[in-house]
Design a protein around this nucleic acid. Structure first.
Lengths: 174, 174
DNA sequence: TACTACGTTTAGTATTCACTAAACGTACAT
DNA sequence: ATGTACGTTTAGTGAATACTAAACGTAGTA
């Protein structure tokens, strides 16, 4: 017996919700994205309400986050007061967008604090073993963060290059 | 006036805690790692209690997660019943370990569900536009996950190659 | 002006989750 | 066996957070 499309969509949505939660996002966010991603046409807020069962309020706030990450796009129709949303289907573009967004985040402020710790030590140098050990460790972590940063920047700069190609390149490195 | 080491350590720990929280881990986990990372010698459970202010119970469970990810290592001393823990200082090795760990996670189960949805559609093919559209979308997402997967595998396989080198390689790609 | 159709904000609620305190299990020592 | 020094597990708590319901603001329409 053939499975209904509705069933497929439900399973798919379930999966995306779990993935969303796994990455620390609300699971409703995954559901919203799934609804948009599986829709051939852009959806209005109320249509998303119908699809996901969430309320307008929740969707309103969460879809703004999705838009900020570049995972969904907002559009309007002339003579129609509603907003319409559609999913970004190019995941590679989405990743780049997310990395860009992350650049000015809470994460970067925290990374900055490591840099500050290092600078503070530079200015107040004490010449004993414990001090030196601590300095080397903090420095190593800071270099690691720098590497992550330049890696993210490199990925952002890559043009029209799919993820699979990247992994192919890495595979050759040996 | 020279800043005390204790002060530096506190700031550093604060920063790592925030970073930990940012990535969806408990902030206590960041504090535990910071304590170990800044210690020249392996620490016992009770010493970590003293450093972080957390209780044994919390540390016991969270340090197991850290160990599973390869971020800390457990060791013992002969004639000493205590366990000792030290931080993995090679972050590149840690990343590889984390990627390996992720292989059998909740995330992969969710990804698997997408694969299942696709297989279900294969077996129950219906020839209309909506069906085809849905199929293509689900398929695209599945390919994306595959790409991520092979990327992770490629990174795991890389031997003795720092992150900075990887980003250098990507930078050349254009 | 009032009315309608929107999206957003807010106040309150339910649930998740990190963490504590304490009981527990275990291995070794006496 | 009794005690002691560990690590682990569990029951409970407080805080963070996702979400609901409803008030609100606003722009178009009569």
């Amino acid at each position: 017996m053939p499975q209904s499309l509705a069933r497929i969509k439900k399973d798919f949505t379930e999966g995306l919700s779990q993935i969303s939660r796994f990455w620390g996002f609300p699971k409703g966010m995954g559901a919203i994205f799934a609804a948009l991603y599986l829709s051939p046409t852009p959806l209005s807020l109320d249509e998303i309400v119908a699809e996901t069962g969430l309320t307008k309020g929740a969707i309103s706030t969460e879809i703004r986050a999705l838009a900020r990450m570049g995972l969904v796009h907002r559009s309007t129709k002339l003579g129609d007061r509603k907003d319409y949303y559609e999913a970004e289907a190019d995941f590679y573009a989405a990743i780049k967008s997310i990395l860009r967004e992350r650049q000015n985040s809470e994460f970067d402020r925290a990374v900055g604090s490591v840099k500050v710790a290092l600078a503070t030590m530079d200015e107040n140098w004490v010449d004993n073993e414990e001090w030196k050990f601590t300095y080397k460790r903090v420095q190593a972590l800071q270099e690691f963060f720098d590497a992550i940063d330049s890696l993210a920047k490199a990925v952002i700069k890559l043009e029209g290059l799919g993820l699979s190609n990247v992994s192919k390149v890495l595979g050759v490195l040996k």
